[in-house]
């Protein structure tokens, strides 16, 4: 509780938001706030200014193109995505969002906020990598697009640079996806997770084992366990799981996610 002093700005457009972010070194974008506000309560982060992205229509909305490509505004909440008819084109998205935290957090927390915070225990970074998402980043010089693989750079670090914003995420058509996780209890903190997509071969993105999602590929679900072993993971140890246990879970969960994906 009890944040440090902070300035608050509520821009009326994406352009204005970008200007505010560019003009203030210590400014940070405030999306759903379900991570950032908590970090600020602990005073582990203390931005000088919060640039509130809520209410910017250009950052919301879910569109389904004729080729099946989904475009999701960065400020789309988990709840909005779960209820979106368009998003059902890629069912795994809504399914995974439904397992994130709780109703209140899903009502405020956003897809963009989840990927931009890139907490290694988040569900969406590995999922975005496995489904082959592409992120659109806006800045003073206009927009650029990066793949999910290029997007995640390190713990709490992404390709969104100073003065930039993630505006939308596009996800190609597909259905053969799977996801598996071990959490504390039914819905607590994530210990390990894996997202898998079958597109000819199987591609699995592993979460919680490194600073960024780790990708392994195999011909089929049967080969996934070997592929994970070959990746020589060295996940961190913490109070919830030793490195050894996480390594083991990665193998099990990768296989389960791949099996689920293959079975669809």
């Amino acid at each position: 509780m009890l944040l440090r002093e902070v300035e608050y700005a509520k821009p009326g457009s994406v352009a204005e938001a970008l200007e505010l972010l560019a003009a203030n070194d210590g400014a940070r974008a405030l999306a759903g706030g379900q991570t950032l506000i908590n970090v600020m309560k602990a005073r582990a982060a203390s931005p000088d200014m919060l640039v509130d992205l809520n209410g910017l229509d250009d950052l919301t909305g879910i569109e389904l193109a004729g080729d099946g490509t989904l475009t999701i505004g960065a400020m789309t909440t988990y709840t909005e995505l779960m209820g979106s008819a368009e998003a059902k084109a890629r069912p795994i998205l809504g399914e995974v969002c439904a397992t994130i935290a709780d109703v209140q957090v899903r009502n405020r927390g956003t897809i963009g906020g989840n990927v931009c915070s890139n907490d290694p225990t988040n569900h969406l970074p590995p999922l975005m990598v496995s489904v082959g998402a592409r992120m659109t980043i806006a800045g003073a010089d206009g927009e650029r697009e990066v793949s999910a693989e290029e997007f995640f750079l390190g713990v709490y670090l992404t390709a969104v640079g100073p003065g930039e914003l993630l505006t939308r995420i596009s996800i190609p058509a597909g259905k053969k996806d799977g996801f598996a996780a071990v959490t504390l209890g039914a819905d607590g903190t994530c210990i390990a997770n894996a997202a898998a997509t079958v597109n000819g071969s199987v591609r699995v993105a592993l979460g919680c084992v490194d600073a960024v999602p780790v990708i392994v590929t195999a011909e089929s679900a049967d080969g996934v366990a070997d592929a994970v072993r070959a990746a020589n993971l060295e996940p961190p140890s913490d109070v919830h799981a030793s490195s050894e246990y996480r390594t083991h879970l990665a193998e099990v969960l990768a296989t389960r996610a791949a099996q689920e994906a293959s079975a669809r």
Partner: peptide
């Protein structure tokens, strides 16, 4: 990190 039981 100190997970108390939730309804689920």
């Amino acid at each position: 990190d100190y997970h108390v039981p939730h309804a689920l």
